[in-house]
Design a protein around this nucleic acid. Structure first.
Length: 238
DNA sequence: GCGACAG
DNA sequence: ATCTTGTCGC
């Protein structure tokens, strides 16, 4: 009872009415952003939780996208469930509109999990976004699940260098507004950039990330999903 | 107008 | 994201 079979990939299709233009996509963000829940602390970081990581990989040559969702037991960081999805690329990469490129496949992978996660960790941003509605917030609103964003770059935001020790952080600022944190997950290693997605506080988001990253810069959820979506992309290639 | 710009 | 050799470290 310890193996976690990965179901065959499901096929991801953008829902009817999926935006085609940048103006349509930005309008969708402006409409959905009002549904982000910001006043919940979310699952306690020390609770027994199932945390899912989601990631997406691309083959632009073949116009193929593969997504993976991996659910981990947060206490042991062992895999509880996995799912993958493949489809056609539904939107070009445009800074600020990443979600429209990633969500159809990412959502299909998440929905393929045999276990409902207590928290979803996304690659990218949540409220740290020009319209305060990045990928993590978008995925949160669509699923209703608590979500956070963990990005590898500061995007357009500014920050001071956090202290050198694991757990130290500095505010990630859009002007004077704190939209996330530059969080050091490993001593002497570049920080990651954490922001709230949906139904989680920034304090809890950072605590979860630290617990999920005991050894490497990135949370284990992200590492597992990254490895799996790359595998799924290769497997989808004739 | 030009550059910067999650993945 | 993706293209890519050797190289440093556990």
């Amino acid at each position: 009872m310890t193996d976690t079979p990965t179901p065959p990939p499901v096929t991801a299709v953008p829902p009817p009415g999926w935006p085609t233009t940048e103006a349509e996509a930005a309008a969708v963000q402006d409409r959905l952003r009002t549904r982000v829940v910001r006043d919940e602390a979310g699952p306690a970081p020390d609770a027994a939780l199932v945390v899912a990581g989601v990631d997406v990989a691309y083959d632009d040559e073949r116009d193929v996208v593969a997504a993976a969702a991996v659910a981990l037991d947060a206490a042991t960081l062992t895999v509880v469930a996995e799912a993958t999805a493949v489809g056609r690329i539904s939107f070009p990469y445009v800074p600020g509109l990443l979600a429209f490129r990633e969500i159809p496949a990412a959502l299909a992978a998440l929905q393929g999990l045999a276990v409902a996660p207590d928290l979803v960790v996304c690659d990218g941003y949540g409220l740290a976004h020009p319209r305060r509605f990045g990928l993590a917030s978008h995925l949160g609103v669509l699923t209703g699940l608590p979500t956070i964003g963990v990005a590898k770059n500061p995007f357009t935001f500014r920050h001071e260098a956090p202290g050198p020790r694991r757990g130290e952080w500095a505010p990630l600022l859009d002007g004077t507004e704190e939209v996330g944190r530059a969080l050091r997950t490993q001593e002497g290693v570049k920080p990651v950039f954490v922001s709230v997605g949906h139904r989680v506080s920034l304090d809890h988001a950072c605590a979860h990330v630290l617990r999920l990253a005991p050894r490497f810069r990135q949370p284990e959820t992200t590492r597992a999903a990254d490895a799996l979506c790359r595998r799924a992309l290769r497997a989808a290639r004739p």
